[in-house]
Design a protein around this nucleic acid. Structure first.
Lengths: 136, 136
DNA sequence: CAGTATCCATTTGGATACTG
DNA sequence: CAGTATCCAAATGGATACTG
């Protein structure tokens, strides 16, 4: 990844007490990256799918309609790295890997689920707005 | 945008009563698209920025650090089309355009804000998980 | 000020083939 | 089964220039 140069990169901001601030509006702030992983196209669906309990790789792949092996593997690795999911690989043949939410992951997945519920419930309004916008 | 052909595209699903179902796990379901616009890199930040009240184009651009004119314009248009924000253009010179959240947009922005708060509050845990993952 | 248009670099993502 | 590796197509996104 190359550095962006549009603006002089801010240092990670600290407040008067010298504590780290995680301002998601600031470019390159760690919270922005974490948030993007979690709200990203596949991260969001994977986390919410895991609210139902442990799942194996191919089960997740079937649940999250349209994800490729590559992207699911990549997504799960990032979520594991950030501490949202736990990966348990049995050294058997054939291999078996179980993915589960960590406590942090569950908190986040619950937030995401609330968001999804809200959007799904309001879809009629969204579709209406779209058709009104389009006839012009 | 070309059609994806990985699987035969499902029809938009209906339940036994013939009502539309908005299952975000299903590829090409309208709720998935709406959700992606709202949780996308810039859509999320634009919506949350507008919780503070009406803002003009360049004010938003300054608030959402790192967004280009092109992407902000594109993002705002999509959010307007989906009914999350309202765009009020004064036909003056110089032009002045005010963006505000619709009631739907406010509900959604509040959900997103809760998510951001949760993630920002847990960033120490995320950074710890990352460093533990990386030393291996 | 609030955009649009164009061009180009980077990134994302999918299909396919392969491995332990 | 659970991936990785490779290759290539498509989407994303930024810099720049321009307009009413």
């Amino acid at each position: 990844m190359t550095a962006r140069t549009r603006r002089p990169a801010r240092p990670v901001p600290t407040d008067e007490l010298g504590q780290l601030l995680f301002d998601v509006f600031a470019q390159d702030c760690p919270s922005r990256h974490a948030l993007e992983n979690v709200t990203g196209r596949w991260g969001l669906l994977a986390l919410v799918a895991l609210r139902d309990g442990t799942a194996r790789f191919n089960a997740l792949r079937r649940r999250v309609d349209g994800v490729s092996e590559k992207m699911l593997a990549q997504t799960l690795r990032t979520l594991e790295r950030d501490g949202f999911i736990h990966r348990a690989a049995q050294p058997t043949i054939p291999p078996r890997v179980d993915y589960t939410l960590t406590p942090l992951g569950r908190e986040t997945a619950d937030q995401l689920f609330a968001l999804i519920q809200q959007i799904e419930g309001r879809m009629p309004a969204v579709l209406l707005a779209q058709s009104q916008y389009d006839e012009r």
